[in-house]
Nucleic acid binder design. Sequence first.
DNA 1: TTCGTTGCAAACCTTTTGCACTACG
DNA 2: CGTAGTGCAAAAGGTTTGCAACGAA
Lengths: 148, 148
Amino acid sequence: MKPAAARRRFELFLKERKLRVTQQRLDILDLAWETHDHFSAEQMFGWARVRNAHASRATVYRTLNLMLEGRFLSSFEASSGAALFEHALGHNHHDHILCLKCGKIEEFHCDAIEKLQEQEAQRLGFQLVDHALILEGHCASCSSTDEL
Amino acid sequence: MKPAAARRRFELFLKERKLRVTQQRLDILDLAWETHDHFSAEQMFGWARVRNAHASRATVYRTLNLMLEGRFLSSFEASSGAALFEHALGHNHHDHILCLKCGKIEEFHCDAIEKLQEQEAQRLGFQLVDHALILEGHCASCSSTDEL
DNA sequence: TTCGTTGCAAACCTTTTGCACTACG
DNA sequence: CGTAGTGCAAAAGGTTTGCAACGAA
């Protein structure tokens, strides 16, 4: 989804839920669409600050959660404990693999894994709603330069 | 691993690392082996309190981390944000599926998924160290009684 | 005008840490 | 005895919340 389209859909989303279209909400959406990287709530707060977008930390958190509910963003837990967000691009769902040394994050998608997850859930009588898969290891450049 | 064996191995582990075998450490190990359920640090603190095991919250956290390092326990992140622990029984590695309504936790293991994770990591040039897979959904009894 | 939203700071929750005291080896 | 471990309370890190002021509809 392109920035303009995202913004339009976000406004619609807000109106459908009878929520107000505020400058802060739009600014945060725009900022989220300006990076192709994963970002934390704190980073977003910093960007807003730098860009005079005037959103308080509380509003940043509230808006990120709102965008999560509307599936404008997805998030996963970094090993630090903080949540990392990324905008939904209309891309297929993907999972993440983190380098434990340099912190690099790569995305991957594997249909076979998804199908097997669904199968396992069914086998256990669960109706699958969501899943979180995070792989951790050493990336190519980090493992080429280490002994440990 | 049975309680007695766990305790013996834990004492060995401590001695190998030149750490002291304290009453608190043994009590916490015993308590961990008294449940077949997943437990949080706070729960363990409560048990210790009730049982006069006299371990402070700080000691509980420190000891749980120690047992994690020694692979006496494994842990994963509950959706609440708190870590859930379970004793290592010598069982094979397994993943978890949580019911979003009643909180029930089931374990499962799927070799095919593990292999595919390894493949994906290799494909991306990563040397896989660990992974976390958590499925979330509605369990059989919760999905039979709901409309949502 | 009205009610949802914001900003601030305080509260929260989980986990870690500094330091004086305790106890294992 | 000497040093690692413990308990306490305070700090830390991330996120949520209560409430008065603000602003979109």
